[in-house]
């Protein structure tokens, strides 16, 4: 499609064989980014898991927003509907229902034991690593050490925080503020006690709301050591062990500074393009440029200079008055 205008040319340039080759190459160069851009967007509808045959059978019922039942023991409503729009945009969009829910669903109504299939993200990702699923190496250990597991929070699993039917990782073209809001929303879904202007346990933190708009909960509530920006640690720390050192983010030599700055700058770049990125760069972190020694020396030199020129000016004024009177 991209090459046709070049190949159909009957101009002297087009009829020149070396030039034609050059144009063909130029056409390819133009076409490749366009093709790869197309492959970065949501998969074509044919590749979507929910459109595969076996999924169609499931979705005959599960597309309904009111698809739910009341659990006999807990008396809570269990939602069984699948938000098709959210699923289409999730990281799992290519999977069909049976890729995860493999057994026990061939009969209707489904047996109640089917719900106890005990799915785990890590297990699934290890078995399907060859199919392109990220390995999630070390995640199981981090998870095992997280406060939710150590303190034995009831019924806690991957799915307490992540909904595999809607989950999508941070990155791409999503604005930073939205990534932060979405990621923090996972925590605040349960920790409703923190939905106050000065959240409980955070009264030591200056401008808590400003922090919450631009920093993820897990930026402070996971270990500082060994961080990889693209793969946040799953070892959620208890309040007492969480990072309360301002300088870990706000000064030089911090473990977080370069990571946070570059991560945010990269996000901004991807989102906005060259000049807009420069204008609306959100990556500056207060304190990142502060250096006590350098600031001290500079302010002293500035103060001495101001004193010096003031004294010089006063001397000139005195000399002028003296000349006037004499």
């Amino acid at each position: 499609m991209f090459l046709r205008p070049f190949l159909n040319q009957r101009s002297p340039i087009g009829s020149n064989p070396p030039m034609r080759l050059l144009l063909l190459l130029a056409g390819l160069v133009l076409a490749v980014p366009a093709l790869s851009a197309a492959s970065n967007t949501a998969p074509a509808s044919g590749a979507l898991g929910l459109f595969k045959d076996d999924s169609q059978t499931c979705m005959r019922c599960h597309w309904m927003e009111t698809m739910a039942y009341r659990d006999r023991e807990t008396r809570e409503i269990v939602n069984l509907s699948i938000d098709t729009q959210a699923y289409r945009h999730s990281v799992h969009a290519e999977l069909s229902c049976s890729d995860c829910h493999a057994h026990g669903y061939s009969h209707y109504p489904h047996r109640s034991s089917s719900a106890d299939e005990n799915l785990q993200c890590v297990g699934c990702h290890e078995t399907h690593a060859d199919a392109g699923a990220p390995g999630l190496i070390g995640l199981e250990q981090e998870y095992a050490n997280s406060v939710h597991v150590v303190e034995g929070v009831e019924d806690f699993s991957c799915f307490a925080c992540h909904n595999p039917h809607t989950f999508k990782p941070a990155g791409g073209r999503e604005p930073i503020a939205e990534v932060v809001a979405r990621t923090n929303g996972v925590c605040l879904d349960c920790h409703e006690e923190l939905l106050t202007p000065v959240p409980q346990g955070h009264d030591w933190l200056p401008k808590p709301q400003a922090h919450w708009r631009s920093v993820r909960c897990l930026d402070c509530h996971t270990p500082v050591q060994g961080r990889v920006p693209e793969h946040p640690s799953h070892q959620i720390l208890p309040a007492a062990e969480s990072n309360q050192l301002c300088v870990d983010c706000h000064t030089r030599g911090s473990a977080l500074l370069s990571q946070l700055y570059n991560y945010r700058a990269a996000q901004g770049l991807e989102r906005q393009g060259f000049f807009a990125q420069a204008l609306y760069n959100e990556a500056y972190i207060v304190g990142m440029s502060r250096n006590r020694l350098l600031d001290g020396i500079s302010l002293s030199v500035l103060a001495l200079t101001i004193l010096g020129v003031a004294a010089h000016g006063y001397g000139r004024y005195r000399a002028y008055r003296k000349r006037e009177t004499s």
């Binding site: 030089r252 030599g253 500074l257 370069s258 990142m288 440029s289 350098l294 500079s298």
Partner: peptide, 12 residues
């Protein structure tokens, strides 16, 4: 960290 070096050069 390069960002810190850049910051100090800019500051100075």
């Amino acid at each position: 960290g390069t960002v810190w070096i850049v910051a100090m050069v800019h500051l100075t």
